[in-house]
Amino acid sequence: MEITPAHYALLSAALFIIGVVGVLVRRNIIIIFMSIELILNAVNINLVANARHLENLVGQVFVVFVIAVAAAEAAVGLGILLAFFRNKETVNIDEMNVMRW
């Protein structure tokens, strides 16, 4: 059976949903950050697969930007996490409610 872009799109969707489940179900914020990385990877697979399907490299250029944003997100997010952990001694998001009304 031939592998079509739809196969890659379905793989991307499945990986995206795994990331969404991680964000919604886990309570360890480090795992949640890693789930966000999985979501971004799912988007990248989709972009690269369609870049090849359409024979247009713009999709790959955008993957470069997505990777840059992912790196920035990881650095800032983990910085916030470290600053929070110094004050509260927890990485459980259910205990991170200081800004909740």
């Binding site: 360890n28 480090i30 950050f33 890693m34 990881a74 983990l78 996490l81 459980n92 409610n97």
Partner: peptide, 23 residues
């Protein structure tokens, strides 16, 4: 990025299970 995550996991020295308390 993954090395950054590993550093943070090691720096965040957990004395108790992070999933213990549930809202």
């Amino acid at each position: 990025i993954v090395v950054l995550y590993l550093f943070v996991v090691m720096l965040v020295n957990l004395k108790r299970d992070p999933e213990a308390h549930q809202d």
